[in-house]
Design a protein around this nucleic acid. Sequence first.
DNA 1: CTATTTTTGTAATGATCATTACAAAATAAA
DNA 2: TTTATTTTGTAATGATCATTACAAAAATAG
Lengths: 193, 193
Amino acid sequence: MKGRPNIHDDQELVLKAQEVFWQRGYHATSLSDLSTATGAGAGSLYNTFKGGKKELFRKALQQRSADLLTFKQKLEQSENQVAPIKQFFLDIADADPITHQKGCIVVNTLTEMTCVDEDLKQEAAEILTETEKLYKQAIAHAQKHGYIASKTPADTLAKYLVTFWCGLNALRRIYPDKKVLKRQIALQLQVLD
Amino acid sequence: MKGRPNIHDDQELVLKAQEVFWQRGYHATSLSDLSTATGAGAGSLYNTFKGGKKELFRKALQQRSADLLTFKQKLEQSENQVAPIKQFFLDIADADPITHQKGCIVVNTLTEMTCVDEDLKQEAAEILTETEKLYKQAIAHAQKHGYIASKTPADTLAKYLVTFWCGLNALRRIYPDKKVLKRQIALQLQVLD
DNA sequence: CTATTTTTGTAATGATCATTACAAAATAAA
DNA sequence: TTTATTTTGTAATGATCATTACAAAAATAG
């Protein structure tokens, strides 16, 4: 293959860009910010991501869809498939302050892009419905095997968890406090007993 | 008083600006958008709001703090102070599609401004903690008078409601569907029985 | 070594942004 | 009326934005 070799790994560019987008959102992030964060100049960024800023953002967002797949595989190896989900939520309380402030890039995007960019809003919404589907399967599995007593439909409980996830990412911004968060998370997870 | 008279009422300017900020957020709203929405030129807007776009946004946000006070007065006239809160949540399901997409300007601002503008983030956070305080008093009152059986501390339940509010404003964007929302809201309000 | 191809950094480019300058308009006071 | 004062709409202003143009750099292929 001819041509000057890549300095920057494409995937690493996406991850470094994701960090900035995650913290500042789409509109408050400039190409200069992305250049600084990635270490790549505008030339490189536009050569790699022909769609420019928006394509880079899309890739950063869709990365979470890939991450979800990894979590799905972990679930499927569990006896009680709801246990890793509960643990995921409980672990949120232990996160560092910056992580609390960042929240969730998918929820952030849903909020930022609604009434602004229908495509990106829809992409964020779809990642959340994917998450919901994963929750639903895990809950149904756990109910079938007696890990959950509640007769509430798995569908409803899954939507409950997605709602909680979105709410928790607001709460942790207001109260980035381990004790408070642990207590609130425990309360919310009671419906899965 | 000397001088050319006002065409635009200050409060109406704020409310018209609020509508645009509520839908599009701070960064995606241009002064041209605000000029169109309010019917006032840049000259008028800067003459009225010396702080420019940011002051106008602040006023639009703080309007919700005033609205909260109105709700507080309604609460204090109720026998069961938690009843109007439950009703408020249940009524969300009946809102029109655009209202679902808009969500809550306070939660939107908390999300948009975290890691971007500490002042505005804090203002949004404070409106939510004010809301929490209002919930807490109402819940404590209801518990004392036997309207709520749950022994869970009012403080914890109030934070639960704020978390739910933030989550619900994501859920309604994904499912702007009366049946779905009614079901999920009813489930979440069960902790207040 | 030469030609070709791709990446890279930098420096335009043109659009859009928030803000300001300013003169005309419209009132009250004198 | 005349003068003073405030509002209004429009047209600069200068900054910043995303994007593109382009030439140097760095590799491979012939």
